[in-house]
Design a protein around this nucleic acid. Sequence first.
DNA 1: GGATTCATGTAAGATGTTACATGATTGT
DNA 2: ACAATCATGTAACATCTTACATGAATCC
Lengths: 203, 203
Amino acid sequence: MNNLGYAILSALGRKPCSGYELVQYLEALWPAKHSQIYPQLTKMEQKGLLVFEHIEQTGKPDKKICSITEKGKETLEKWVMESPSDPIMRDELLIKVNSIWLSDQESAKKIIQDRISNLEQQIVDREDIIAEMECKHRFDTMSKHFGRYLLFNRRNMLEKEEISWCKWALNFIEKVNINKLLLGMIGVGKGSILVEDMILFII
Amino acid sequence: MNNLGYAILSALGRKPCSGYELVQYLEALWPAKHSQIYPQLTKMEQKGLLVFEHIEQTGKPDKKICSITEKGKETLEKWVMESPSDPIMRDELLIKVNSIWLSDQESAKKIIQDRISNLEQQIVDREDIIAEMECKHRFDTMSKHFGRYLLFNRRNMLEKEEISWCKWALNFIEKVNINKLLLGMIGVGKGSILVEDMILFII
DNA sequence: GGATTCATGTAAGATGTTACATGATTGT
DNA sequence: ACAATCATGTAACATCTTACATGAATCC
């Protein structure tokens, strides 16, 4: 079984739900498009890890509610104990920042500023969800939602720290440019003072 | 062109290098195995984005040094200005944390403690590299290494914050368990006081 | 009237991983 | 002796994305 499969089992452990709902739930866990979810669910049903229940709806398309089976629960339980492999992050911004030397100051600053805006929006949205969790899930039902609660707080902490980095980087970029302009030293020799300046600035 | 291609161009913009070296360089930017790099380089050479230079070596296998072309530079420059798409993070740990309710306290704590160890190791390693960068790249050569310098600091900031979350989560897990044990309330009713306790603890 | 939400599925293509293949040098 | 580093490549497979396909209800 693959990670998507375990993520689905983890989601269904909380409560049974449709493939459509899974797409949303998994966004914070292991993002996947519906075109990946539905075939995966079929495979998992064939393996006996989950069962389908067909629900007819009026005014809406019919849906298939998936529930985790005993076998599914056992499979997940066994996997959870194994140590996880290294995380992988793919972010175009990193490539763009790495290429910063060939773009002008303003363009460089703009991509970072846009990132700050995106992060800020995501944080306010997530803070609403966290508040809702704290309000809605009392202790008796909290247990199954506890992990998700930890994860939402994790994301917020990391995104706030990313904003801190963005601001630090913006200041740094500005500092470098001001130095370049003031001393008229684009690529000229005695710049070693500048680097010390920059390093002082970091500390 | 795909993101891997732009990452390669970004790497080659700094200095020409072999496919083998690219694998290491790209780890912090857009990780890829050599089996993906070599065919990608061939495609990019055919498109005129880079050129190969065959270097014969004694005692070591021969290598092919790739250099970015004017067309490659222009392609990268154009792409850098476009706004990046959303980052994607895939981390098995998240699925395991989400499934925390079905593993025992000790196993749950262990996976988080292991993560802390990994992060701490990565941070000390990266701090060495950062120190080396600050030392080696004086102002005249800094420009092309500037983006990478920003990125290494970014990673360190984020990983330090992840450690903070891990420690917060460990405390939280312990707190929940102590409450469960003390009050003997596994799944029993009047737990609402506990949740308040937990929320107080977060604040 | 047009976009979004709900709801499921398939097909084609792009991207990424694991395994197979070779072979000398250097460090433990 | 054995593992790791340097160095490049292919093949098979797994994973993920984009596009095609349908269709009613609700919101702006």
